[in-house]
Amino acid sequence: MRYPIMIEFGTDTTAFGVVLPDLPGCFSAGDTLDEAVTNATEAATLWIEDMIDRGESIPAPSRLDAIVQTPEWSGSGWMPGFVNIDPTIFDERAERVNITLPRRVLARLDARAKDAGESRSGFIARLALSA
């Protein structure tokens, strides 16, 4: 999935700034153009994951030509581009996995899950999402 980005040119003393117009409040920067785009990809992924975790909807990507025609982004200080987001972050399907743990660790895990009123899988998922 490709989200459009707008890149503000950097100088010898300032970083390249990157804004993702479709993801409110999502921005990044980097000392080089490549670093700025890489950091923007990470920022967008984290923004989307946070919204999913909070049960919020994710805006669909806009068309780049529509964005660059708006007054906010049409100035000469901005360069358009894209970040590619791995679509698997949107996949909520359950998948069976096989893990190996020492029995003492598994017993402790099961006891904590039981105390929390959760299944083993649900407890592990909640721990992973809260980290």
Rank of each mutant, 00 (worst) to 15 (best):
P4Y: 01
I5P: 04
I5D: 12
M6H: 01
F9I: 13
D12W: 04
D12V: 09
T13M: 06
T14W: 09
V18K: 01
V18F: 02
V19G: 00
C26N: 07
F27S: 08
S28F: 00
S28H: 04
A29Y: 14
D31G: 15
E35C: 09
T38P: 02
N39L: 02
N39K: 11
T41K: 02
T41S: 02
E42P: 08
L46V: 04
I48V: 09
D50R: 12
D50V: 07
R54D: 14
E56M: 11
P59V: 02
D65A: 13
D65V: 15
D65L: 13
A66N: 15
I67A: 06
V68R: 11
P71H: 00
E72D: 04
S74C: 07
S74D: 05
S74M: 06
G77E: 10
M79C: 07
M79G: 06
G81W: 00
V83S: 03
T88I: 12
F90P: 03
F90N: 03
F90C: 02
D91Y: 01
R96S: 14
V97E: 07
T100K: 14
T100F: 05
L106E: 13
L106T: 08
A107F: 07
A107N: 11
L109E: 03
D110C: 13
D110H: 08
R112F: 05
R112C: 14
A116S: 06
G117Y: 03
G117R: 14
S119Y: 00
R120A: 13
S121W: 00
I124N: 12
L127G: 15
A128K: 09
L129S: 07
L129K: 10
L129E: 07
S130F: 04
S130A: 05
